[in-house]
């Protein structure tokens, strides 16, 4: 009978990557961890991602990039979210990032950065912990 507040996650791929295997694996894993996962497909602009996050009222956005375009796309997405007053949404990144870029990605507000070989259970645990730490969701 207990109605738990579901964690809603948007998994999105900004940029021009040709495949989304990794994003799909993460989406599936988070679903299996009991979350509601909205998946938007390949080749999304920052504007599309932010609007989808807004309409879906997600608690968390996971962005997957393989093409090294994060330097341009991540700041834009953060800027748009801030403009919409939704910089409360938990952000994490997945894909391939040069080690030296990771501090900058974190500085932008991405609480987690998951490279190749990450355990999907760790990603699910990360989201749960972060969202629990934010107190009651959707206040």
């Amino acid at each position: 009978m207990t109605e738990t507040k579901k964690i809603r996650v948007l998994i999105a791929k900004p940029g021009l990557d040709g495949h989304d295997r990794g994003a799909k694996v993460v989406a599936r894993a988070l679903r299996d961890a009991g979350m509601e996962v909205i998946y938007t497909g390949l080749r999304q602009t920052p504007e599309m991602i932010v609007e989808a996050a807004l309409q879906e009222d997600v608690d968390c956005i996971g962005l997957s990039i393989l093409s090294n375009a994060h330097g341009a796309l991540f700041p834009r997405i953060v800027e748009l979210l801030t403009g919409e007053g939704r910089n409360d949404i938990l952000l994490f990144a997945g894909g391939i990032f040069p080690d030296e870029d990771v501090p900058e990605i974190k500085r932008l507000g991405f609480r987690g950065v998951f490279g190749p070989g990450s355990d999907t259970r760790d990603i699910a645990a990360f989201i749960r912990t972060e969202i629990a730490a934010r107190g009651p969701v959707r206040g």
Partner: peptide
Amino acid sequence: TSPFTGGALLGDRIRMMEHIA
């Protein structure tokens, strides 16, 4: 919703992104 995990994969947006703007 998956009756086993309580999670769900919501993918209908993939076909509707043309309207997003």
